[in-house]
Every structure is written in structure tokens, then in C-alpha cells.
Design a protein around this nucleic acid. Structure first.
Length: 467
RNA sequence: GGGCUGUUAGCUCAAUUGGCAGAGCAGGGGACUCUUAAUCCCAAGGUUAUAGGUUCGAUUCCUAUACAGCCCA
């Protein structure tokens, strides 16, 4: 697989050049005093402060006996200025051999150029690491989506907005945890390898444990384990981590995706609505300094209370057909081939959800769709459940948890008599307090908050077919 | 799974009706001590995704494959 092009060959030769000069071009630790932004923020006119900084050489402008260049660190870029009369002819000619992409450490005093850019005058430099491959020109960036996903490191390097998006993703996750931690929720970790994949309806990935001699499934949801913890007296828990579903890949689905699940004892789905509002309000306010953001040319206002509408009300509103019972949806689509749940999902996906632009709770789902949710006391056909939507996208799902082990077993049986998680039923038999549960799809939340339309843009290394 | 679109130099993009495959930047050589998409001069860089087919001649038309993107189920 040895790939040789002229460009790679030239860089290999540079490697040899440095070694012949007695410089090993894969250096060691380098102590810095300033990041790029600290240099800029700390600048005082006339102070001539000496700094040590390090970064990747991103551009170069050579003028005979002087060179302007930019080095880049995680915070940004800082201009550096090398002159033959400062470095001496030998070191200056060495400096000329740096390629864009190389990591260098520099030491020198800070000044402002005639054009007003804060710049480090290079008095000493250290080779930190050689780049053996050419970088795409930053000006044009890297646009080829396939290359961007396969070589995300290059994407991050040359596309500033991509780097910023993933920094934002990190902030969102930090803020979510910060809010929940303040509310006394305990972050926990439950098995990703499960012998019965529960908590959702989806095809799991199968793996094998050699020592135990059994097949295991990568989890499709952590739900049943988190509720076991509430049985065990951990009254407020959350887990924010990966789920795996062996299904199609699309702009909204990656086989592994990140989910936040929260459980709160003695609460119900109305508490989960308030929790959702407060949680997202906290995140959005801290991230943007406002509760209003622009997403796909539309202003989204996170100010609570959000719209609350039942599933049947929403269907009636958006199709114009009065629906009060599940069977009524056959008045909208009369397809004998399709089950009621198929028709319902079709109507919700196509007629209802695209209209839910402002944050909206769509509530009170039919019981047949929700085997883990508690029925409404005045109507056992419906459960206390909501999904919430922003920009027409489903971002989360919540319910008053079903804590009746007998009813739960019955519902599992109706769903699939061959795969009943008896241990979970047994846990419920010990007693699950009334409990509200909430799940939020983190990738989709990040998409909504960063105005992105493909999940691959918010996952660092999206799944692709190997080349 | 189905449909549509794309794949040309390291990167970003051209190429007329089927008629010598081009540019900018990067990279190489040279000039230049305040540039910042530096500038100026010179030279180079290609199995047009892959495999076939039609044709005197294919980046261009056809078939298949691979990968990707968008839409649909």
C-alpha cells in the first residue's frame, strides 16, 4: 500500500535533510508560556514581552531575508516573524525549510506590525513534529464530504467551523451534565453489552463472549437498567452515552448514537416536561446568551412553557379529520394492508411532525405503541408519554414509567412472548416507585442547536463503508 | 432496499456537438527584510474512481462495479 507521489517524496527528503543537520524532526515536550490567544490578549504596546508558543505552521509568506507565517493551536492562530538578522543566516536558512503542517515551538518577543497584527518575533525555534503529507489549502478548505468524514482530523484542521461545531457539542454535553448534577441527579454507567436488548424496539448488534460462551447484544437503550437503579433506591439517575442500533444509515441515523436518559422517582411525565424545558433553557441560555436561536431560517424560541398538544389533537389539527380514538385514523388513510400503528406512524411522520417547528410536546400516545409507559388513569388506551420536537425533528421521548410488574409482563408478552426480560419483571416486583423517565437524542439536539441537517456533521467519526 | 446525482492534479474547480485534459492555490527552482489568499519570473505535476463496451477517436455515449451525497420506503 506504499503510496508515492512527488509531494510525499519531497517531504520524505526534508525529513532526511533535518536528520542530516542533526535535528530529529519528531521532538519532545515543549514548555509554552502562552497560547495563541494569550499572546494576543496579553499584548501591551511597547512591553516587548518574551513568550514561548507552539503550534502547527499553517501558512508562510517569504520575503528573501524575512518570513511571515502563522502557527495554529486549538484556540486560533498567531503570526510569527522570522528575520535573518535576528536568527543568523544559518538558523534562518533552516527556518526556511519548514513546511506547512509542521509543528514548531518558538520563543521571542511580541510586537505589533505596521498593519496592526500582533506577532511574535522569532528569536529561537524548535522542531516539534514533521508533517509528511501536504495539507489542503485553508482558504479553500476541504469540501469533499467523503474525505472530510474519513479524515476528520484534516477536516478539523482546515475547516474552522467544523472545529467550532465539535467544541459546541462538547459544551452542550457539559451543560446538560452540569444542570442535572445541580439537581442532584447521579451520573451512572450501565451495561452496553446486554443478554436481552430492551428498552426500545430496534435491531441490535450481536457479539459473542468467549469465556461465558454466550451471545451478547450491544444495547439499544439503557432504560431497563436505569429503572433497576431506581428500584435500588438511586432516586435520580442519568446516563449520557452511546446506544447501538443495527438499522439503516441516513442523515438522521448513525448506527451508534448518543442518548441522554434521566429517571426521577416520585415524578411523572408532566415533571419530565418541566425538566426538559428547564434543561434546554439552561443549555441554550448558556450557549447563546439568549433563548431564541435561528435554525434553518426560522427563529426557535425556547422560552417555557412550550406548546403541549395531544397526539389526537395534533392529528385532527393538521389533517382536518376529527380523531378521538385510534381507529379514527383509518378515516385519513384507509389501507387494509397496513396496521394501525403503521398508519399512525405514517401520519405523525408526514402530516404532524414537520409542523412542529417551535419546541412542542406531543403527548398521550396510544398504549400499543408504548409498552414501558403507564396508562392514563381515565383512559387505558392511552399512556402518559410525550415526544418533543424542535424544527420538525423528534429530539426526545419521555413517560410516566410503568411500575406495575403484572401489567408490564402482560405488555412484554403482547410484544414478544419469546423475549421477556424476567429479571426486569422481578426487579419491578421488588417495587419501582412512581417514576418519570426522559430520553434526549444528543446528536439530534446538537444538530438542532448548530443548525445542521446531517447527523454525520455532528458525529466526529460517522460510520462509513471501509474503502 | 429503490430512485437521482457525483467521482478530473495534493486542495478547489473548468473542459463547447464525441476531436491535443486546463486554471487558481499548494508543492519545486529563482528574486524579494512589514507580509497576511503576499508579489514577480521559471519549470513541473494526470492510468479523467475501477473494469468492460460502442467509435477512426471517449473526461464526454452505454453497461457493470466501488465509494459518496441527496430523496424515498
Amino acid at each position: 500500500m506504499e503510496e508515492t507521489t512527488e509531494l510525499l517524496e519531497i517531504r520524505r527528503q526534508k525529513l532526511i535533510f533535518w536528520q542530516e543537520k542533526g535535528i530529529y524532526p519528531f521532538g519532545q515536550r515543549y514548555e509554552t508560556t502562552h497560547t495563541s490567544q494569550q499572546v494576543i490578549e496579553g499584548f501591551k504596546e511597547g512591553s516587548e514581552e518574551k513568550v514561548r508558543s507552539a503550534g502547527r505552521l499553517m501558512s508562510r509568506r517569504e520575503h528573501g531575508k524575512s518570513i511571515f507565517a502563522h502557527i495554529k493551536d486549538v484556540q486560533g492562530k498567531i503570526q510569527i516573524y522570522a528575520r535573518a538578522d535576528i536568527l543568523g543566516d544559518d538558523d534562518f536558512s533552516l527556518f526556511k525549510e519548514f513546511d506547512t503542517g509542521d509543528f514548531i515551538g518558538i520563543q521571542g518577543k511580541v510586537f505589533k506590525t505596521h498593519k496592526g497584527e500582533i506577532t511574535i518575533l522569532v528569536e529561537k525555534f524548535t522542531f516539534l513534529s514533521k508533517s509528511l503529507r501536504p495539507l489542503p489549502k485553508e482558504w479553500y478548505g476541504l469540501k469533499d464530504t467523503e474525505l472530510r468524514y474519513r479524515q476528520r482530523y484534516v477536516d478539523l484542521l482546515v475547516n474552522e467551523e467544523v472545529k467550532n461545531l465539535f467544541i459546541t457539542r462538547g459544551k452542550i454535553i457539559k451543560l446538560l451534565k452540569e444542570f442535572l448534577d445541580k439537581q442532584d441527579f447521579l451520573e451512572v454507567e450501565t451495561p452496553m453489552m446486554q443478554s436481552i436488548p430492551g428498552g426500545a424496539i430496534a435491531k441490535p448488534f450481536i457479539t459473542h463472549h468467549n469465556a461465558l460462551g454466550i451471545d451478547l447484544y450491544l444495547r439499544i437503550a439503557p432504560e431497563l437498567y436505569l429503572k433497576r437503579l431506581v428500584v435500588g433506591g438511586l432516586e435520580r439517575v442519568y446516563e449520557l452515552n452511546r446506544n447501538f442500533r443495527n438499522e439503516g444509515i441516513s442523515t438522521r441515523h448513525n448506527p451508534e448514537f448518543t442518548m441522554l436518559e434521566v429517571y426521577q422517582a416520585y415524578a411523572d411525565y408532566t415533571d419530565m416536561m418541566r425538566l426538559t424545558e428547564e434543561l434546554l433553557m439552561f443549555v441554550v441560555q448558556n450557549l447563546f446568551g439568549s433563548l431564541k436561536i435561528t435554525c434553518e431560517d426560522k427563529e426557535i424560541d425556547f422560552t417555557p412553557p412550550w406548546q403541549r398538544i395531544t397526539v389526537y389533537e395534533a392529528i385532527s389539527k393538521y389533517t382536518g379529520v376529527e380523531v378521538t380514538r385510534l381507529e379514527d385514523i383509518r378515516k385519513i388513510i384507509d389501507d387494509k394492508e397496513k396496521s394501525l400503528t403503521e398508519i399512525l406512524n405514517h401520519i405523525l411522520d408526514n402530516e404532524v411532525e414537520p409542523n412542529l417547528i417551535q419546541p412542542t410536546f406531543l403527548m398521550d400516545y396510544p398504549t400499543v405503541l408504548s409498552p414501558l409507559a403507564r396508562q392514563k388513569q381515565n383512559n387505558p388506551e392511552l399512556v402518559e408519554r410525550f415526544e418533543f420536537f424542535i424544527s420538525g425533528q423528534e429530539l426526545g421521548n419521555a413517560y410516566s414509567e410503568l411500575n406495575d410488574p403484572i401489567e408490564q409482563k402482560k405488555r412484554f408478552y403482547e410484544q414478544n412472548p419469546d423475549k421477556i426480560d424476567e429479571d426486569y419483571i422481578e426487579a419491578l416486583e421488588y417495587g419501582l416507585p412512581p417514576c418519570g423517565g426522559l430520553g434526549i437524542g444528543i446528536d439530534r439536539l446538537v444538530m438542532a442547536l448548530t443548525n445542521t441537517t446531517s447527523i454525520r456533521e455532528v458525529v466526529l467519526f460517522p460510520q462509513l463503508r471501509p474503502k
